[in-house]
Simulated scan of single mutants.
Amino acid sequence: MATPFDDVSVFETVNRYGKSSEEAYAMGDCPNCAAHQFVVIAMTSSRDRAWLRCMNCKLAVVSNGGVASPAVKPLRVPSGMPEDESEVWGEIRECLGVGAYTAAVMLCRKLLMHIAVAHGLPAKDGKDRAPNFAQCVDHLVAEGVVTKRMEPWIERIREVGNEANHEIAPVGRESALDVATFTQKLLELAYEMDDTMARTQPLQ
């Protein structure tokens, strides 16, 4: 009778494979630590399914037809971010990694508005209403967090975000990465530059 293990080779448990076998190792990008080499724990005979472990951080990764889980998260984490912003940025990167591009763009838009409030824009006006996107952008420019030259990029977030907000129109990978790349730059300007300066030793 067939079993779920018939086409699976588990390394170190069958005579065919061992630690010195080429098949026991694989190259790729670790989604956790960005190392590039994995130990193959097991794989199917067709080699389209594999269970891997990063040789550096020991994270377990599953590859199904060349699609890894957990996915590699693009972009980077700017330093100096408060916890709330850091958590949202982490979620944006996770969305990009798994192809949830519309969700990533909506979170980028929300994060931009949150940064404006964190930099002095009142969370509510006299009518108990939250600021709109344009007010947030104006505040970021007025406070010098972003410059006039960066406004076209903010407009890009607004345009793509509006499409995602008001229409059933999926956002593509390129547009999502455009928006997320600018959002990363905004986080660097809003938090990382101050954090870097605070850690820099004064000139002697």
Results as ranks from 00 to 15, higher is better:
13 T>F: 14
7 D>R: 12
8 V>W: 10
18 G>H: 13
202 P>V: 02
164 A>I: 02
58 K>Q: 14
10 V>Y: 13
169 A>R: 13
37 Q>P: 11
129 R>M: 09
123 A>R: 09
27 M>H: 13
149 R>H: 11
160 V>K: 07
94 E>W: 07
96 L>H: 06
103 A>Q: 07
13 T>H: 15
41 I>T: 00
16 R>F: 11
160 V>Q: 09
136 C>H: 12
166 H>T: 04
20 S>F: 10
157 I>A: 06
30 C>E: 04
61 V>T: 07
90 G>L: 00
59 L>Q: 08
148 K>E: 15
136 C>K: 10
54 C>K: 01
30 C>K: 00
33 C>Y: 03
203 L>R: 10
183 T>Y: 03
148 K>V: 14
67 V>S: 13
138 D>H: 08
21 S>E: 02
102 T>R: 05
40 V>T: 05
111 L>E: 02
175 S>H: 12
56 N>L: 06
125 D>L: 12
92 I>F: 05
193 M>K: 15
56 N>M: 07
198 A>K: 05
28 G>Y: 02
109 R>E: 01
67 V>E: 10
99 G>V: 01
191 Y>P: 09
152 P>D: 02
113 M>L: 05
110 K>F: 10
164 A>R: 03
198 A>Y: 04
82 P>L: 00
136 C>D: 12
31 P>E: 05
70 P>G: 05
148 K>L: 14
151 E>C: 13
15 N>F: 15
78 P>E: 01
141 V>C: 11
123 A>P: 06
85 E>T: 11
42 A>Q: 01
161 G>W: 05
130 A>D: 08
61 V>G: 12
62 V>G: 12
75 L>R: 00
146 V>W: 02
16 R>K: 12
147 T>C: 05
113 M>D: 10
22 E>D: 14
122 P>S: 03
73 K>I: 02
112 L>T: 11
186 L>N: 00
29 D>V: 12
176 A>D: 11
110 K>C: 12
27 M>R: 13
98 V>Q: 06
17 Y>T: 10
193 M>D: 15
72 V>Q: 05
164 A>G: 09
23 E>H: 07
91 E>P: 06
